[in-house]
């Protein structure tokens, strides 16, 4: 097991989840189960009150447009530059990627990865699979992929954390984390613990 994972003392105290659209409630519930104060973030000023932020699954076009419109994108870039950990799951991974070919709307552009949207196809091609994720320990991580993106390029300094069928589906760059799948939809909290430990690393 990663040294920080599972040790509550190293966990971030106040974590936000961007609550504009998507499955933010599932992330908030997982954070609360971990004993973290969870904040539903819908306004830019709330980004000053949290130590880490999760961008949930949802529709990346919708989340991107609303975040831009409400002034969250700019503020988030400032906070990330100050070292606040940010994790994007599925649509959230698209939101934080520097490069998303063909995406119709402006995004936060934080992490040096290229992400291809709907890379496995439409909903009928959505799938569940066990992943080998060495940073979480030896046990496989059961992952839920829903109209999922894949990470098609990782920049220098980006660490690949997991693949499926040869495609990169989880990566980390410093305090930035991106996953194509939805740890908030399963009861395995190891990815949330891993993310919360990044703030203290």
């Amino acid at each position: 097991m990663h040294p920080a994972v599972g040790d509550r003392r190293t966990l971030t105290a106040r974590a936000g989840v961007l609550g504009l659209q998507g499955d933010f409630a599932e992330h908030l519930a997982t954070l609360e189960r971990l004993g973290v104060e969870a904040v539903d973030v819908r306004r830019p000023d709330q980004l000053d009150e949290i130590d880490a932020l999760i961008i949930p699954g949802g529709e990346s076009t919708t989340i991107g447009k609303l975040a831009q419109q409400y002034g969250i994108v700019e503020k988030l870039r400032d906070r990330a530059a100050e070292g606040m950990p940010v994790w994007g799951t599925c649509a959230g991974a698209i939101f934080i990627a520097k490069d998303v070919p063909g995406h119709p709307h402006p995004l936060a552009s934080l992490m040096d990865i290229t992400v291809e949207r709907n890379a496995f196809g439409r909903q009928v091609d959505s799938f569940e699979a066990d992943l080998d994720v060495p940073v979480l320990g030896a046990d496989p991580f059961h992952a839920v992929f829903i109209r999922a993106p894949v990470i098609t390029r990782v920049g220098p300094g980006v660490e690949v954390l997991a693949r499926t069928g040869g495609s990169v589906v989880a990566a980390r760059q410093g305090r930035l984390l991106a996953t194509s799948f939805h740890p908030e939809l399963t009861h395995d909290e190891r990815f949330h613990r891993f993310f919360l430990s990044l703030g203290k690393s």
């Binding site: 998507g22 499955d23 933010f24 409630a25 949802g58 599925c90 569940e128 109209r147």
Partner: peptide, 15 residues
């Protein structure tokens, strides 16, 4: 699977 079917609806919430 049921998780995938209900999961897509979870992603639509708030929309």
């Amino acid at each position: 699977t049921w998780t995938l079917k209900t999961g897509l609806a979870q992603m639509l919430k708030g929309g």
